[in-house]
């Protein structure tokens, strides 16, 4: 890729009705987009607001829109995304309220995990008590493999910001919450299956998904929320057709 001497960085400043500020930042070898943002804050404008914690792709807090596409900035090398002219455009995550500068408000995103019944409900202990005995869960069983496929989500909201359906319907639960629900539907220890399927059904839930798979394409953990949502649709289809709900 191109190796320009300096980067021309446009950074979103202000709230929803803010505008871009432009910075010329020295290009360095192996720098990540998060390094660039940190450089801007430390050397050019200390009032710049952004969010990060671990810097190594574990916490999921540094996601932003980089050149029009939601990414983890800590795991995105500048040379992979920058144009030949050294242009870099940074915005807060899409589909979420902007608090300030590069910080989006993730409250609506996590509220939807709650609405999708994303909380594990122990079958043997509905009151939340620790069950008497260990549950036996064969790792090779189909249900467990479905659950394992989606369990590594760290809640960075990259999928949510990339989803067209969220943009069209603000009530839509979004890929991450539905993916979480699918892992629990497949968890044999969970006792809230019916309730959860009710919570993820309909226009605000899995039935609005168009399977365009931006979520799967852009998930930094290579998870497949699109297939999880298809699984929820399939389960609800047969449960509805066979009168199980």
């Amino acid at each position: 890729m191109a190796e320009p001497a300096s980067l021309k960085v446009s950074v979103w400043r202000g709230g929803e009705d803010g505008s871009f500020a432009r910075f010329e930042v020295p290009a360095r070898a192996n720098q990540t987009v998060l390094d660039v943002v940190t450089t801007i804050q430390r050397e050019f404008d200390p009032s710049l607001a952004y969010r990060f914690a671990c810097r190594v792709g574990m916490c999921g807090s540094c996601a932003m829109t980089v050149n029009g596409r939601a990414r983890w900035t800590c795991r995105t090398h500048v040379r992979k995304v920058v144009g030949e002219d050294g242009a870099l455009e940074l915005r807060p995550l899409a589909n979420l309220p902007v608090i300030r500068d590069l910080v989006a408000d993730l409250a609506p995103f996590f509220d939807k995990w709650q609405r999708a019944r994303g909380v594990f409900q122990p079958k043997d202990a509905p009151d939340g008590a620790v069950p008497e005995d260990f549950a036996v869960v064969p790792p090779a069983s189909g249900a467990r493999q479905e659950a394992d496929a989606g369990i590594e989500c760290i809640g960075c909201a990259v999928c949510y910001a990339s989803c067209d359906v969220v943009a069209w319907n603000p009530d839509y639960l979004g890929p991450a919450a539905l993916n979480r629900a699918w892992t629990l539907v497949n968890d044999v220890r969970d006792g809230a299956r019916q309730d959860r399927l009710d919570a993820v059904a309909g226009d605000a839930g899995c039935h609005s998904c168009h399977s365009t798979q931006s979520c799967t394409e852009r998930c930094p953990k290579n998870l497949d929320p699109s297939s999880a949502i298809a699984g929820l649709k399939r389960t609800l289809f047969w449960d509805t057709l066979l009168g199980r709900r």
Binding site: D198, F237, T240
Partner: peptide
């Protein structure tokens, strides 16, 4: 009410498929 509506929407989805 939301769940009743969601049930109706699920039926519409099933009918369409």
């Amino acid at each position: 009410r939301r769940r009743a509506a969601a049930r109706g929407q699920t039926h519409l989805w099933a009918v369409q498929r």
